[in-house]
Amino acid sequence: MTATSEATEIRPFSFEFSDADLHNLKQRIEATRWPEKETVSDQSQGTQLSTVQALAHYWASEYDWRKVEAKLKALPNFITEIDGLDIHFIHVRSQHENALPLIVTHGWPGSIVEQLKIIEPLTNPTAHGGSASEAFDVVVPSIPGYGFSGKPTEKGWGPERIARAWTELMKRLGYTRFVAQGGDWGALITETMALQKPPELLGIHVNMPAEVPPAVEVAILTGNPVPEADYSEEEQRAIEQLQFFYQHVYYALEMATRPQSLTGLADSPVGLAAFMLDHDAKSLGLISRVFNGVEEGLTRDDVLDNVTLFWLTNTAVSAARLYGENTSQFFSAKGITIPVAVSVFPDELHQAPRSWTEQAYPNLIHYNQLPKGGHFAAWEQPELLVDELRTGFRSLR
């Protein structure tokens, strides 16, 4: 075997966190030094003390990491070196013939944990209300610096390089045609794949589309007046939602510009959790209700499965660096011409208007506004997202 073939080899991947690792985590949670309560009655100052204390109590006294560890280990995990970096991924082939290969990319503060609920329904549709003709082969990679993938030791691993790596991964798995899906960073990486136009990529699906007229997003980002136009009610609502989001996105600015200053996230599990929960107002509200005993969307275990993976792999800082590698606007239309399917969830950072979506994607093959769900669609509303993927990609089979 040559050195080149060794580097490109796809190797089975296994992992094991010791009882000592979990005991150390519990000790750190129990030793948390708490700040005083916020001076407001809402979440305007961030993750509320009562939420974090409820999370910490459950984490230290009832939560069982071994449950999700068993779920992860039951799936086929692999690792392969691409462009000098180890890339971890889950790869589940459907037993149905002519399954459509699909690569699904998570976001921040997410991980492969986000996609665990959709893998089985996508690969085994006949057991989950679908037909054999709707089957997918599913590939779920860990973004560089996240989870079990390698941590870049130099700059340069931005969405463009990741997108090229994803195409190489799918080709290395033997796929000559495939589709791609993502939300959050996953959406940007997926759209970047579409812009690169590898011939194997048939189309994409995103649940956080980049459809905003560029001049509108630039104005919002810079605090300038939005260009005058006869905006529809939907478009005006999207503008207001984006204005609100960009007024509360300072966590991203810190990660983009000063990731190494977040060393405390590698030292305090509760500090890590408090930071990760505060991604956006709707998600924080949902998670806060969950830790207050309300059953909806996510569970307490869902939330802690993800945070614990970040903790055990020590990837808080390495994951944060992705923000500094990005040179694209998240929401501006980018000129994608290949087939695109879009799902709009009501509690997303903004609800993409049909008008802007049709302008942004001239080859729009599916657009749907869902009745419930937010930013982490695969995690919060897996059944709805699975149905959207079946419907959205139907014409590309």
Rank of each mutant, 00 (worst) to 15 (best):
K155Q: 15
R161S: 03
V68F: 00
V294S: 00
H128G: 07
A281Q: 15
V68R: 10
F310Y: 15
N77A: 03
E120V: 14
N292K: 15
A378V: 05
A180C: 08
D387C: 10
F178H: 06
P225N: 14
I162C: 12
E295T: 13
E62I: 01
T167R: 03
G46W: 12
W311Q: 03
E228N: 11
A127Y: 04
F245D: 00
A180P: 08
S395T: 15
V139Q: 04
T176C: 08
R354E: 15
T2V: 00
A135L: 01
G186M: 02
P76I: 00
L286V: 12
L221I: 09
D305W: 04
M1Y: 12
V68L: 13
F89V: 08
W34G: 01
L195D: 14
F393T: 09
M1P: 14
A165H: 10
Q247P: 00
I118K: 07
I162Q: 07
Y367Q: 13
A127I: 00
D64L: 13
L370M: 15
K117Y: 07
R397C: 09
Q45C: 11
P35C: 00
P353D: 08
M170K: 07
D387G: 15
S5I: 06
L298S: 06
N368M: 07
T126C: 01
R164H: 14
D83T: 01
W59H: 11
T4Q: 14
T357H: 03
D230I: 13
D184I: 01
D137L: 06
L272R: 12
P225M: 10
G373T: 09
S343N: 06
V179E: 04
S133G: 03
L384G: 07
K171A: 08
F17E: 13
L349Q: 11
G84M: 05
F376K: 09
E217K: 05
R172W: 05
P225R: 01
S142I: 07
K155D: 04
L396Q: 07
G150S: 01
G264A: 14
I338A: 14
L85M: 05
L385E: 04
P101K: 08
L102Y: 02
H128I: 11
A333Y: 07
Y323P: 00
E383K: 15
K334C: 02
R390A: 08
G107H: 05
E233D: 12
E69Y: 13
I90Q: 13
K171I: 08
A266N: 15
G203F: 02
R93S: 07
W108Y: 12
L389R: 02
T39G: 12
E9I: 00
Q27G: 04
H128V: 04
F136E: 05
P141F: 10
L384N: 02
L49I: 14
A7P: 00
E235K: 11
K117F: 01
F13Q: 12
L195C: 10
M276K: 12
Q243T: 02
L221G: 01
K151L: 05
Q329D: 11
P213C: 11
W157G: 12
E154W: 03
E325K: 05
P152Q: 09
A215S: 14
L100P: 08
Q381I: 05
H106T: 03
V218C: 05
A215C: 02
D83Q: 12
G46S: 04
E358A: 07
E191I: 13
V303S: 04
Q369F: 01
Y323A: 01
P35L: 03
A215L: 09
A187L: 07
N314M: 09
E134D: 01
